[in-house]
Simulated assay, not measured.
Amino acid sequence: MHRILVASLHRATHVINLLMNYLRSVREKQFERKLKRTVGFSFTSDWASHNYVNWEKWFTGYGHQPNLRVLEIGSFEGRSTVWFLENVLTHPSAQLVCVDPMPWPVNPPRPRFMHNIQLTGKAQQVTLIQERSEIALTKLPPASFDIIYIDGAHDAINVLADGMYSWELLKVGGLMLFDDYLWEPDKPEYHRCQRAIDLLLKQFGTRKTLLHLDYQALLRKDAD
């Protein structure tokens, strides 16, 4: 009986996954048709523009740098992606890797993401990896990024994993930026970024320099 129940659950899970993938595909095609009639960028939210003043101070000095490599964990509709493309990855050899599973079956962000980066004229400089970060980051070469921006899943365990994996991917002298350090202060610690970022800062110790700590946390990797 137990084996029959397990087999039935596996079949049901498989059917549900197929249905979710089908629904996501249908919704994405509907959005793609709609976006073809859209003039200009298309966003449904803005969680980035309030950071632009700081980003200009921290990152625009990297502009026109050949072979610059930036990793963005959590891209959603591409608002921060567009900013980096237009202000930092200005050399044609610069590359931006975006990691985001984009799993939503309702209002999936991928069509808007693709639409928005196409409008920058730099889509060829972007690689989108649609996998969970704990899977995708293990496939990337170590010490291969100059800037890493972490704005993925916000539970402490996810932020901790993203930070640990990203440390190995960051070049010495590179910058790592965490978003939402002060996000949702009334939530339990395990549901917030802050606890994980504090643990990471302690773990990295003297191998890093903390450059900024407010709603975002910026550090430089000084040694492996």
Score class of each variant (00 low, 15 high):
residue 136 A to D: 09
residue 126 V to A: 04
residue 145 F to G: 04
residue 161 A to R: 10
residue 149 Y to P: 10
residue 141 P to G: 10
residue 160 L to D: 12
residue 151 D to V: 00
residue 136 A to L: 00
residue 132 R to S: 15
residue 130 Q to H: 04
residue 138 T to Y: 10
residue 159 V to S: 07
residue 138 T to R: 15
residue 150 I to K: 03
residue 145 F to D: 06
residue 136 A to F: 03
residue 123 A to E: 09
residue 157 I to S: 13
residue 169 L to T: 05
residue 122 K to D: 15
residue 133 S to A: 03
residue 167 W to K: 05
residue 146 D to S: 12
residue 143 A to I: 13
residue 137 L to M: 08
residue 156 A to L: 09
residue 170 L to N: 04
residue 172 V to E: 10
residue 172 V to N: 09
residue 158 N to L: 08
residue 123 A to F: 08
residue 159 V to I: 10
residue 144 S to K: 01
residue 153 A to I: 03
residue 158 N to A: 13
residue 172 V to P: 10
residue 135 I to M: 12
residue 156 A to E: 02
residue 129 I to D: 02
residue 150 I to Q: 01
residue 136 A to R: 09
residue 142 P to G: 15
residue 123 A to S: 13
residue 172 V to G: 00
residue 162 D to K: 07
residue 152 G to C: 02
residue 168 E to G: 13
residue 158 N to P: 08
residue 164 M to H: 09
residue 125 Q to C: 08
residue 124 Q to P: 11
residue 170 L to K: 00
residue 153 A to S: 09
residue 148 I to A: 03
residue 126 V to F: 11
residue 131 E to D: 12
residue 151 D to C: 00
residue 137 L to Q: 11
residue 127 T to V: 10
residue 137 L to I: 04
residue 150 I to S: 00
residue 131 E to K: 14
residue 148 I to S: 05
residue 129 I to H: 11
residue 166 S to C: 02
residue 169 L to C: 02
residue 143 A to D: 14
residue 155 D to G: 14
residue 146 D to Y: 07
residue 133 S to V: 00
residue 163 G to Y: 02
residue 151 D to H: 01
residue 153 A to W: 09
residue 122 K to L: 13
residue 138 T to M: 13
residue 122 K to S: 07
residue 168 E to M: 12
residue 145 F to K: 06
residue 129 I to Q: 06
residue 123 A to W: 13
residue 157 I to N: 14
residue 140 L to M: 01
residue 150 I to M: 01
residue 139 K to V: 03
residue 126 V to C: 04
residue 164 M to P: 05
residue 131 E to S: 10
residue 155 D to V: 15
residue 153 A to H: 11
residue 137 L to Y: 07
residue 149 Y to K: 02
residue 126 V to I: 11
residue 152 G to M: 00
residue 145 F to H: 12
residue 152 G to R: 05
residue 166 S to D: 04
residue 130 Q to D: 04
residue 136 A to M: 07
residue 147 I to F: 08
residue 153 A to F: 09
residue 169 L to P: 08
residue 137 L to V: 07
residue 141 P to I: 09
residue 159 V to W: 08
residue 126 V to N: 04
residue 159 V to F: 08
residue 166 S to Q: 04
residue 157 I to H: 15
residue 151 D to Q: 06
residue 129 I to T: 04
residue 138 T to Q: 15
residue 150 I to T: 07
residue 152 G to I: 01
residue 162 D to T: 10
residue 128 L to I: 02
residue 143 A to W: 13
residue 165 Y to T: 06
residue 171 K to F: 02
residue 128 L to K: 05
residue 135 I to T: 13
residue 168 E to Y: 08
residue 129 I to G: 10
residue 139 K to F: 07
residue 153 A to R: 12
residue 134 E to V: 11
residue 146 D to K: 08
residue 125 Q to H: 07
residue 128 L to H: 08
residue 159 V to R: 00
residue 166 S to N: 06
residue 143 A to S: 14
residue 134 E to S: 13
residue 137 L to F: 05
residue 148 I to T: 05
residue 167 W to R: 06
residue 143 A to E: 14
residue 164 M to C: 12
residue 134 E to R: 13
residue 162 D to R: 01
residue 137 L to T: 04
residue 154 H to V: 03
residue 167 W to H: 05
residue 150 I to L: 07
residue 128 L to N: 01
residue 146 D to H: 14
residue 126 V to P: 11
residue 143 A to L: 08
residue 162 D to G: 04
residue 146 D to E: 12
residue 165 Y to P: 03
residue 145 F to T: 11
residue 124 Q to L: 12
